[in-house]
Design a protein around this nucleic acid. Structure first.
Lengths: 212, 212
DNA sequence: CCCTTAGGTGTACGACGTACGCCTACGAGG
DNA sequence: CCTCGTAGGCGTACGTCGTACACCTAAGGG
């Protein structure tokens, strides 16, 4: 074994994430990351086979501190809610990386650990078979969509303002104006509560969940 | 007025969409679209200022036949469901374009018309102010996330299979195996029903919706 | 000590979006 | 019918991207 690696993959991921935080996702470039690390561009290819692998490294690194332990809340819906809020909290530190996380959601190990906790809670709540599949996919679907929305089209952003000032769609205009006063937290937890309420009513036992 | 335009924007959008359907979103290139139209690359710039504008054209073109009339179902939840299913039906014809649609959701006029119909239904159901904003965003969030999931990580796809055959996360493995037998329609409508059930229980009048 | 092997680099290629400047074909006004 | 202004259309070229390839270099085990 003739030489030690001088660069830990974590350093690589951290450098790439620093680039994203500074210059946005469009600024993520093999050359930019190399500059960030004071290396030559091609040196990166000693650690990753291509850009896609670097992106996966970033996704994993973003969620390295994600707490995936099953929460202690008495209601299973609160357990799921806590798990979802934890993802949002981690993601919130690096909003520009959201599309990367979503693209790598099926490969990122932290996200798999997280999903394992979610399905464990769902299983304990009585969800089995197809019902559990659909419950998980609905949750992940909402989570992805909501995080994307928050990042790419925030309620206070130019998209909402454009809708609030057009005249062709009056109900949308009124709704967009009301939206200007809604915080991202309200939006996210409000939507999450809707999904969770729907989940509670879709239990295999139509009469309420076992609640543990 | 010294010369008529020889190329209708619709032809441009249709050509770009043909490229996407054939070669995927990564194959969408100014050069590829120009070749499709038997023009030079730079000729496209007589009709769009840049690639982003072409992408918006594609998004609008994808949804040109979207029926945004308010459905006649007696239950408002069924009205919303019908509207959502109509979007999925249109999108299903061009699955590779989904990320384009999501990226342009706040600029595409067909999508604005669609959203106007949705908020109209929500308003008639009694949703006002912040509650209506959150209801709409939850719906759109789920819709975006579910369509993305269906396109980028279908249940029968390699991601699910990888999860079904790993051993580190047993509950996820079992869930992924159950997922192999779930059709995209089941998944989409199942999740949509969950969201709608949650919406019904989040009415401003806590005791059931006015239902008209 | 030296030889093997991985780390690190410089150069180069093909593809991308698109700025720029040049011809060309059309249709309105004389 | 002619002509001239304008928009359509094109070829070339530039800067950027990911990355293949060939080349040096430094470190440890025999």
């Amino acid at each position: 074994m003739p030489r030690a690696r001088s660069l830990h993959p974590d350093r690589l991921a951290a450098a790439a994430l620093a680039v994203i935080d500074r210059d946005g996702l469009a600024g993520l470039t093999m050359r930019a990351v190399a500059t960030e690390l004071a290396m030559s561009t091609m040196a990166l290819y000693r650690y990753v086979t291509d850009r896609a692998e670097l992106e996966l490294l970033v996704a994993d690194w973003c969620l390295r501190d994600l707490d995936t332990s099953v929460p202690a809340d008495p209601q299973w819906t609160d357990q799921v809610k806590t798990l979802a809020l934890r993802v949002r909290a981690q993601v919130g530190a690096h909003p520009q990386a959201v599309p990367l996380l979503i693209a790598n959601r099926q490969r990122s190990r932290p996200l798999l650990r997280w999903a394992e906790s979610v399905v464990t809670v769902l299983a304990a709540a009585g969800f089995t078979g197809t019902g559990r599949v659909i419950a998980l996919r609905a949750l992940v679907g909402y989570l992805n969509g909501a995080l994307l929305q928050e990042q790419l089209g925030a309620l206070g952003g130019p998209g909402t303002e454009a809708i609030a000032s057009q005249t062709d769609f009056p109900v949308m205009r009124e709704t967009a104006r009301a939206a200007l006063g809604v915080t991202p937290e309200q939006e996210f937890t409000g939507g999450l509560d809707i999904v969770l309420r729907g989940l509670r009513r879709s239990d295999p036992e139509p009469g309420g969940p076992p609640s543990s």
